[in-house]
Amino acid sequence: MRAISAILLLAPLAAHGQQDSLGKVAESPQRRAFLALAQAAGGHCVAAMPDLAKQFAETPEPELRRLAGLALSQCDLAQGHYDEAVPVLARLKTLYPGDADVLYQTARLHMRAWNDTLFEMYRKAPSSYRVNQISAEIFEIQGRYAEAAAEYRKAIEKNPAALDLHFHLGRALLLQSHSPEDLGLARREFEAELNLNPADAVAEYEIGQILLTGQDSAAAVKRFERAASLDPAFAEALQAVAKARMDAKQYGEGIALLEKVVRLQPGNESAHYSLMLAYRNAGRTADAAAEQAALDKLRQAPEGEFTDFLKRLGDKAPQQ
């Protein structure tokens, strides 16, 4: 909104400049920029874009560069030049990290590109299994898991050898219902995924989780171990193996695994929590306390606009 407001504010000034002699305008880069911004705001992108591009590339003035970049990317989007908008927005994100207008414009770019591509897909390849797959993924995002599962099944019927479909179907089955019976159905899909791709560490992990829920911890641990061997940086799998080691009182091995997870993912609260309890159970009190301190720090929400908003809503200090 800030960009549009700025453009609107600049518009009368630029429009006034437009009424001066063209020669004068041409003499001042700043005036040319204002004129281009006004033209872009008025929908005259073809006329505006050369000057916007030049200003975005050359002007030393940060706010003018920002406005020029935003207007340029907006014109690219308006004209369907998504490929050209991409580098502009990428540079804007680098120059103005966290800027709401830049992020908004970037989101619009991806949304437009997504919509156009999806439309093209439905139009040109309506019977492809990919249409069912993308439909299923959309249903998943909407929380309509039963419909997602139905679409995944259609996709599998069309292309039984395609990777990821069984995995996603298994996941949708887990999300669609709380029924213990569906655990078996989901497991069947994860197994089918593994038949297609024996190196799928996440499918192994999901089967491990199902086995664990069903009280077969010995079989579950084997699955977690295999998942971790397939992907040595798979934090959840490493953590699951570590918990099994701790349950077996193999504290040294369990702690070593958890320390590895924390090294891999220093911001992983769950890993810090597991490591804290592992140290505690092993009698390493000081290390446990250090992990608790690390966990407490992570659990403090990062400062920022959203955090402030939350604080206003819920984090008021209680009255005594």
Binding site: G143, L313, G314, D315, K316, A317, P318, Q319, Q320
Partner: peptide, 23 residues
């Protein structure tokens, strides 16, 4: 009326998130 007043796309009674803590 705010983000803490929804459950699975249904408008519902707000809270506890969004309401001030007590002790």
């Amino acid at each position: 009326q705010n983000a803490y007043c929804w459950y699975r796309d249904l408008p519902v009674a707000c809270g506890p998130r969004g309401l001030p803590f007590d002790r």
